[in-house]
Design a binder for these strands. Structure first.
Length: 423
RNA sequence: GGAGGGGUGGCUGAGCGGUCGAAAGCACUGGUCUUGAAAACCAGAGAAGGGCGACCUUCCCAGGGUUCGAAUCCCUGCCCCUCCGCCA
């Protein structure tokens, strides 16, 4: 959520920054809502103040043994007036909060301008792609019988996968490797969290109210959704709380399945397991002192990069342009891994600083030691990494030209010492 | 699924339909004392929102209701705890 006060005072510059995202802020409507809100709020508070004073007087009169009948009569239809004013005020406030909740985070000044992914800016590359002296095969071909997409389609439909034997083990091994690295080397606390969450939780991180179509909802009485990422339950751990300053930064790592409807992506990435309705991800979440969130973004991104480096997978880091930013992010660095069969870099991690955007929605604060007052924390998260896509990258980058795939050195311990996959 | 007990400030925990944002303790901040610290004593201090400001409003799980007035009474829902049953 954008700071309502800043929205009022700096409406021009905020509108300008939202324009970079391709969002035209309806300034006239916002100002009209604000004017009504202010008028109704003052009216409600004035009436409530009168009621309070009158009730207190009646209480005092009663305690003194005086006749309270004239005082009660003098209250008149204050109650009805107040109820009507409250009704109007609630209506404006709901309209206003719906309007404000639908506004994305204005991009940080360091975010490159642009409309879509073609305007993203490459920041750095690590390792040049291996120049195979043969035609590289894609992950579906390499995985052969260990990847059973027909079985998945039979039992669940399209965009699901069944992994068998060595491929299932590689998938599990990658997950363990990632978690271990973040816990043991980067100091994250591992957490296990629910995969179903309620509406309030999704509003907290920004998936709702705007993007309900992207989620899988649970049918029936329970108003719950399958999580689209661990970011949702993990970041919400600190919702509606005031943290001690000494607790910061909080660093959580969680491994969860992620569920996405992929509405609007029909026909996109339909080959193989690149884009699935269900996939596994190891997610990094940080809750930090607002003064330190930009350093934290670099640090968190480096933690994700460590996984790629240990696996010796060529990748590049790109800064998302304003038009390609997610709803809640003020800035995002994507890590893109090289996929030989596609001959291009593809997203494998997305690391973002949300500043106080999510914290405001969640009412997540820390006690500022200098003022003793609560301030909003800053939240960040990033994939470290998307497991299914890492699996693709390992298969394709570690193929030997004869249809065999070697096990990256870093994974040997997670694969029973095997040096190659018997797919 | 059955029976019972609860949800009050950062935490623990009192609270009679009225002057209750709410006792007390812990934790916190400032001061006194001390070479320093601790202890003790004194004082301050909840959260959200509005207003340039003096100030004002809201908040005792949530939503309704009764009332001039609700933390307190009534209804509904949610959550937690204990016991029984079932169960990985």
């Amino acid at each position: 959520m954008i700071d309502p006060r800043r929205l009022r005072l700096e409406i021009g510059s905020i509108a300008e920054r939202l324009r970079l995202r391709g969002i035209e802020l309806d300034v006239a409507r916002l100002e009209e809502l604000e004017t009504r809100r202010k008028r109704m709020q003052e009216e409600v508070e004035r009436l409530r103040n009168r009621r309070r004073a009158a009730s207190r007087q009646i209480g005092e009169a009663k305690a003194a043994g005086d006749d309270i009948a004239p005082l009660v009569a003098a209250v008149g239809n204050l109650g009805d007036d107040l109820a009507e004013a409250v009704r109007q005020f609630d209506a404006v406030r709901d309209e206003l909060s719906e309007f404000v909740n639908a506004l994305p985070n204005p991009p940080d000044d360091s975010v490159p301008p642009g409309r879509d992914e073609t305007d993203n800016v490459e920041l750095r590359r690590w390792q040049e792609p291996v120049d195979f002296n043969f035609e590289p095969r894609d992950h579906v071909s390499l995985a052969s019988a260990s990847l059973d997409l027909e079985a998945a389609a039979k039992i669940a439909g399209s965009r699901f996968s069944v992994l068998r034997g060595p491929l299932a083990r590689l998938h599990r091994g990658l997950t363990q490797f990632m978690i271990d690295t973040h816990v043991l080397e980067h100091g994250y606390e591992e957490v296990y969290v629910p995969y179903l969450v309620d509406r309030r939780t999704l509003v907290g991180t920004g998936q709702l109210p705007k993007f309900e179509d992207d989620l899988f909802a649970i049918d029936g009485e329970r108003d719950q959704f399958l999580i689209p990422t661990a970011e949702v339950p993990v970041t919400n751990l600190i919702r509606e709380s005031i943290l001690d300053y000494a607790e910061l930064p909080l660093r959580f790592v969680a491994h969860t399945p992620c569920f996405r409807s992929e509405a609007g992506n029909y026909g996109k990435d339909t080959h193989g397991i690149f884009r699935q309705h269900q996939f596994e991800k190891v997610e990094l979440v940080q809750i930090v002192d607002p003064a330190k969130s930009w350093d934290a973004l670099d640090e968190l991104t480096a933690h994700a990069e460590t996984i790629l480096r240990k696996l010796e997978l060529p990748y590049r880091a790109v800064a998302l342009c304003a038009g390609d930013l997610g709803f809640a992010a003020a800035k995002t660095i994507d890590l893109e891994v090289w996929l030989p069969a596609e001959r291009r870099y593809r997203e494998i991690s997305s690391c973002s600083n949300f500043l106080d955007f999510q914290a405001r929605r969640m009412l997540a604060r820390y006690r500022n030691p200098e003022t003793g007052r609560p301030n909003y924390v800053h939240t960040l998260n990033g994939s470290g990494l998307a497991v299914g896509r890492t699996l693709i990258a390992v298969l394709e980058n570690y193929q030997d030209g004869n249809g065999a795939v070697h096990v990256p050195d870093a994974l040997r311990g997670y694969m029973g010492g095997s040096t190659r996959l018997d797919l």
